[in-house]
C-alpha cells in the first residue's frame, strides 16, 4: 500500500520564549527565516514590544514585517499601538495596509488614539484612520466618525468616514450625514454616499 503512517515527524514542543538578549538578537539576524521565527515566538509578549519596534523600523522583508505586525497585534496594548500608528503615514503602501489591518484587529487598544488620528494634518492618515473605526462598537464608532465629519474640510476624508458609517453607523449619525451632504453639495459623490449611508442605517430605500 502506498499510504504509510506518518511517524517521527512530531518534534518536541519548543520551549517558551525568553526575553534574554540572545533570544531577541534573532530579530537582527541576517537570515530572514531567523527574524521570522523570532518575531513569531515573541507574539503576544508585552516585554518584547521595544525590540519588535526596533526590528520593524529596519525590516525590509514583507514576510517578516507581517510577522512583527502580528506579534504586536497579539500584544494589543497601548505600547504596541504606538509602535504601529506611525506606519499609517509610511511611504510604502504595503506597510500602510499592514498597519491598518493589524490595528483594525485591536479596536479597544486603538480607540484612545482615534481623536488624535482624526486631527492629523495628513489627510491620507485621516482617511486610513476611518477604517480603524470599522471594528469598534457601533455607538463609539458613530460618535468618533460623526465628530470627524462635522469638522472635516476634505471631501475624500468625509467620503471614507461615510463609507464606514454605512456599515456601522447608528441613527444618531443621520443628522450629521445630512449636514455633510449639504456642506459638500458641490461635490456630487458626497451627497450620493450620504444617501446610501442613510438608507442603510435607517433601513429604507435610497
Amino acid at each position: 500500500m502506498p499510504l504509510i503512517k506518518a511517524g517521527g515527524k512530531a518534534a518536541d514542543k519548543p520551549a517558551k520564549g525568553d526575553n534574554s538578549a540572545g533570544h531577541l538578537a534573532g530579530l537582527t539576524s541576517a537570515a530572514a527565516d531567523t527574524r521570522w521565527s523570532t518575531a513569531r515566538a515573541l507574539a503576544g509578549r508585552a516585554d518584547a514590544v521595544p525590540a519588535l519596534a526596533g526590528a520593524l523600523a529596519s525590516e525590509d522583508s514583507p514576510r517578516v514585517r507581517e510577522a512583527i505586525m502580528t506579534a504586536l497585534m497579539r500584544v494589543g496594548n497601548e505600547a504596541s499601538v504606538k509602535v504601529m500608528l506611525p506606519y499609517l503615514a509610511a511611504d510604502d503602501a504595503g506597510l500602510r495596509a499592514a498597519a491598518v489591518e493589524a490595528l483594525q484587529g485591536i479596536p479597544e487598544a486603538v480607540a484612545p488614539f482615534m481623536q488624535a488620528l482624526f486631527a492629523d494634518t495628513d489627510s491620507d492618515v485621516r482617511i486610513l484612520a476611518t477604517e480603524l473605526a470599522r471594528n469598534m462598537p457601533e455607538a463609539e464608532a458613530t460618535r468618533l466618525l460623526c465628530a470627524l465629519i462635522e469638522n472635516e474640510q476634505h471631501p475624500n476624508v468625509c467620503a471614507a468616514a461615510i463609507d464606514v458609517l454605512t456599515e456601522v453607523g447608528t441613527k444618531e449619525a443621520i443628522p450629521v450625514l445630512e449636514r455633510c451632504a449639504t456642506r459638500f453639495a458641490a461635490t456630487p459623490f458626497v451627497p450620493f454616499a450620504v444617501s446610501v449611508a442613510i438608507a442603510r442605517i435607517s433601513g429604507t430605500e435610497a
Binding site: 507581517e66 502580528t70 497579539r74 493589524a102 484587529g105
Partner: peptide, 11 residues
Amino acid sequence: FDDASRRAAAE
C-alpha cells in the same frame, strides 16, 4: 476566527 487568530493561524 477573528482577525488576530486568522493571522496567527495563517503564519
